[in-house]
Amino acid sequence: MKIRLTGYIDVPADRLDQVKAALPEHIRLTRAEMGCISFDVTPSPEVPGRFKVTEVFTDRNSFDAHQQRAGATDWAKVTKGIPRHYQIVELP
């Protein structure tokens, strides 16, 4: 079953520059992962500092591997402690 994550991360103003600088590499690395069908992180036009996140992976193993890899990157360091508001569902 495919795994889809949707939601957002609200980045505090004092960390916004760091997060924006790390984002392109995070997107590039994630899209290159085996099992990644799509991965998008886009600024919200309505809420300053909010980034909408949508990702789809081919299966749970690919999704779990992404979570593990991403947890050991610069992205993880610059976003550490910033609450995420995500919903993860299985798709047929």
Results as ranks from 00 to 15, higher is better:
residue 63 F to R: 13
residue 3 I to F: 06
residue 70 A to E: 13
residue 21 A to G: 06
residue 33 E to H: 10
residue 47 V to I: 14
residue 92 P to I: 02
residue 2 K to M: 03
residue 15 R to G: 01
residue 36 C to I: 07
residue 56 V to N: 01
residue 78 V to H: 08
residue 33 E to R: 12
residue 64 D to Q: 14
residue 39 F to I: 06
residue 8 Y to H: 14
residue 76 A to Y: 08
residue 10 D to W: 02
residue 85 H to E: 05
residue 77 K to A: 06
residue 63 F to D: 07
residue 27 I to Q: 09
residue 62 S to D: 12
residue 85 H to I: 08
residue 2 K to V: 00
residue 24 P to G: 01
residue 83 P to H: 13
residue 22 A to N: 11
residue 64 D to K: 07
residue 33 E to M: 11
residue 78 V to M: 11
residue 30 T to W: 00
residue 55 E to A: 11
residue 1 M to K: 05
residue 26 H to I: 04
residue 63 F to H: 15
residue 29 L to K: 12
residue 7 G to V: 04
residue 23 L to A: 12
residue 38 S to R: 10
residue 17 D to C: 15
residue 36 C to R: 03
residue 61 N to L: 11
residue 8 Y to N: 09
residue 54 T to F: 06
residue 52 K to L: 14
residue 86 Y to P: 02
residue 32 A to P: 09
residue 67 Q to P: 01
residue 27 I to H: 02
residue 5 L to M: 11
residue 75 W to Q: 01
residue 62 S to G: 15
residue 9 I to R: 08
residue 56 V to Y: 00
residue 88 I to K: 01
residue 58 T to A: 13
residue 27 I to K: 10
residue 86 Y to N: 06
residue 41 V to M: 07
residue 70 A to Q: 06
residue 54 T to P: 00
residue 75 W to G: 06
residue 8 Y to P: 03
residue 92 P to Y: 02
residue 76 A to E: 09
residue 64 D to Y: 10
residue 11 V to I: 12
residue 75 W to I: 04
residue 69 R to M: 12
residue 12 P to R: 06
residue 6 T to R: 08
residue 73 T to N: 10
residue 25 E to N: 09
residue 63 F to C: 10
residue 88 I to Y: 03
residue 13 A to S: 11
residue 91 L to M: 09
residue 56 V to E: 11
residue 31 R to Q: 10
residue 84 R to C: 03
residue 13 A to Q: 13
residue 49 G to L: 12
residue 60 R to L: 11
residue 61 N to D: 15
residue 65 A to M: 05
residue 76 A to M: 13
residue 18 Q to I: 00
residue 12 P to I: 04
residue 25 E to M: 14
residue 1 M to H: 09
residue 13 A to Y: 12
residue 81 G to S: 03
residue 91 L to Q: 04
residue 64 D to R: 13
residue 29 L to P: 00
residue 47 V to T: 15
residue 92 P to M: 00
residue 4 R to S: 01
residue 62 S to F: 07
residue 31 R to W: 01
residue 23 L to Q: 02
residue 42 T to Q: 08
residue 66 H to P: 14
residue 90 E to P: 12
residue 81 G to H: 05
residue 11 V to L: 08
residue 68 Q to C: 15
residue 43 P to G: 04
residue 47 V to S: 11
